[in-house]
Design a protein around this nucleic acid. Structure first.
Lengths: 192, 192
DNA sequence: ACCTGAACACCGTTCAAGT
DNA sequence: ACCTGAACACCGTTCAAGT
């Protein structure tokens, strides 16, 4: 029998604190001293676990993508229909707004693209690609006849719609704006 | 006969340099020392013209909104039809990507919402509101029967579509992605 | 293995001092 | 009216030093 683990590793606590901060204020506003204070260590200790801010942000984005894709894969495995899967997808981005008017971790960092170290930029791109690929796959099942190019463009459009709606609703600090926008997209047939 | 003005005021040069920097890297990455170096003064001089970073960013956003709305109003005055006006609108956000993979000034600052001084946040919200109102007005002319709520939701959806597509295409550093996404939206009838 | 204090060059901001 | 150098408390990062 191994030792009980009653407390998260320092690395895990750092990642949890940092993730919450980035989703609220972005990569540039992430402060090693703030993270350290929130965890109860000094900022130099954070550098022991994550040598640079880029290393920390890249780790955050990689895990964020993994966890998100795991959830999306369980959605497919559950055998729910096309519309139900899309509704769950739209609900994921709504949840970030519910959680203190936050954004998707990679959505907010995408806006900071030019400021990101290359490794972080790559992880953000990987998140976007994974999301568009999942949506494209879902669409392919729905419309077997469509060309790959058109299916991918539509997958990207759904991702852009959700990301854009999140951005606009967040600026208004009003979840009803997110719902109204997604309703308008639904009316145009974006989810049919 | 008054004195010739062969050079822009220092304030104007500061705003031009700062605007370009914010559209490329955001509010947080805007540096008074970088702006000063680009204009040829010291950072303390920038504070003479714009006491705080918030004052500078608020002035940038206010003028950006004014200039943008002036252009949109000339579009309407030209008497072009609904589709042509929307095509011009979509082209505005494309142009930022053409200009060094930049973003809409207020779009990128919207992502930084939580970091913005209140005055800047208000200007960013005013830009969004003005854009949605313009789109809503355009839609009202096109579909006189629609309820104000639905027209506004659809106006917000078009704005979110454009902002989201810009964000996604910028992350890929590929204008073709913007065009493909807008094409997919057009296919769903978002612009009909 | 993990943490820390001290130092470095950056940042926005302030202010007394210059012209 | 406009600009500046110097100082302040911040920042990410490094590193020698501690346990």
């Amino acid at each position: 029998m191994t030792t009980m683990r009653t407390q998260a590793d320092t690395s895990e606590q750092i990642m949890a604190a940092a993730r919450s901060m980035v989703q609220a204020r972005g990569y540039n506003a992430l402060s090693f001293r703030d993270v350290a204070a929130s965890v109860g260590v000094k900022s130099a200790s954070v550098h022991y676990h994550f040598p640079t801010k880029g290393d920390l942000a890249a780790a955050l984005a990689r895990r964020y993508t993994e966890e998100g894709m795991d959830y999306l894969d369980t959605l497919l495995a559950r055998g729910e229909d096309y519309r139900a899967c899309l509704a769950r997808y739209v609900a994921i981005f709504r949840r970030a707004l519910e959680d203190g008017n936050r954004m998707c971790l990679c959505g907010i960092m995408a806006a900071e693209n030019e400021d990101l170290p290359a490794a972080v930029r790559a992880e953000v791109a990987a998140f976007t690609n994974a999301n568009v690929a999942w949506l494209t796959g879902l669409l392919a099942g729905r419309r077997p006849g469509t060309s790959p190019e058109l299916a991918r463009a539509r997958g990207a459009a759904i991702y852009a719609a959700v990301a854009g709606a999140q951005l606009v609703a967040r600026g208004r600090n009003d979840i009803a704006v997110y719902d109204a926008i997604m309703g308008a997209f639904a009316d145009t047939g974006l989810f049919d």
